[in-house]
Simulated scan of single mutants.
Amino acid sequence: MRRRTRVVVGAVAVLCAAVSVGLVMLVVVRDLNTAGQAAGIVGSVASLAAFVLALYALYQPPATPAPGTGEGAGAASATGPRSVTVSGSVGRAVTGDNNRLSGAAPDPHVPPGQSRSGGHDGAPVPETPGTPRAGERAVSAGGDIGEVVTGDGNTLA
C-alpha cells in the first residue's frame, strides 16, 4: 500500500473507533432509544460516504504500469481473418492449424535491458506494444508477447 492509502485507512479506522465509543457512551449516559437513533443517522451518513467513494473509484482511469511491464501497455488492434488481439500480455498466440506444441508458453515479460528476438531469422521484435496490425493471422497485444506461432503444421518441442 502507498503511504497515502495507509494514512487514509488508519484515519478511517480511528474515526470508526471514536464513533463506536461515542455510541456506547451515549447508551451509558442517556438511553438506548437515543443511542439507536444516533446509530441510525451515523449508519446513513456512512453508507452515503461509501456510495460516493464507490462512484469515485468506478470513474477513475485504470492505473498505468511502468513501461515494458505488459498489462495495459497499449491499445491492441489486429484485423483480418484468424487474427488475435489481446488487451494485456500473452505467453503464446497460435493462429495456424495442425500445430504440435509441447511445453509451457514462455513468460511474456522481457526483463528490462533485454530485447526478445523473434521470427525464423532471429531479428529483434519491435518494441511497440499496441501497434495496430492488419492481415490474415495478425497478432497484436497491449502488453508483451512471449511467442507467436502462425502457419499450419508447425512442430515446436
Rank of each mutant, 00 (worst) to 15 (best):
T69L: 14
V42Y: 03
S44M: 07
S44C: 01
C16L: 13
L53V: 00
S115Q: 14
L156W: 11
A49H: 02
A13Y: 09
D97A: 15
S20W: 09
R137G: 05
V42K: 04
T150F: 04
A38E: 00
V7K: 15
S77F: 12
L48A: 14
D107K: 03
R6G: 10
Q60W: 00
A157T: 14
T85M: 03
A13S: 11
V8E: 14
L53N: 04
G146T: 06
E136N: 10
S102V: 08
G68E: 06
A66T: 04
L23W: 01
V29G: 11
P61L: 06
P65A: 04
H120S: 15
V90N: 01
V149G: 14
G96N: 04
V90W: 00
A73K: 08
A93P: 02
A13W: 09
A134R: 06
A17L: 15
Q60T: 00
V21R: 12
Y59V: 15
A78P: 04
V19L: 07
L156S: 01
L15R: 07
A78L: 02
A157M: 02
P111C: 03
Q114N: 06
A138M: 00
Q114K: 06
L101M: 02
G135A: 01
P126C: 12
V94S: 10
G80R: 03
P65C: 02
V86R: 08
G68H: 12
R3M: 14
A38T: 05
A49R: 00
G119R: 12
L101V: 08
A105N: 07
G146M: 06
P67F: 13
A157F: 08
A123I: 07
R6K: 14
T155M: 07
C16Y: 09
P111V: 02
M25V: 15
G36T: 06
M1D: 07
A35G: 00
G72C: 05
G151P: 11
T5Q: 13
A93T: 05
E71L: 09
V9G: 00
G36F: 09
G135C: 03
P132V: 01
T155F: 02
V90C: 14
V8A: 06
A104C: 05
V24Q: 08
T150R: 14
V8N: 12
V52H: 06
E147C: 11
E71I: 09
P108E: 09
R137I: 00
A93K: 12
L55T: 00
A46W: 13
A134I: 02
R100T: 15
A123D: 10
A138N: 02
R133K: 06
G91Q: 11
M25Y: 05
Y59F: 15
L26K: 01
P61W: 03
D107Q: 15
S20I: 14
A38W: 02
G142Y: 08
A38V: 10
S102C: 11
V19E: 04
D107Y: 10
T155E: 08
E127D: 15
R100M: 01
P124L: 03
H120G: 13
T79P: 00
P132I: 01
C16A: 15
E127Q: 15
P67W: 14
A73N: 05
T69H: 05
A11S: 09
S115Y: 10
T155V: 13
A54Q: 03
V42Q: 09
P126A: 14
R3V: 13
R6L: 10
P65T: 07
L23I: 13
G72Y: 01
A123L: 10
R3K: 15
V28Q: 13
A73T: 06
R92Y: 05
R92L: 15
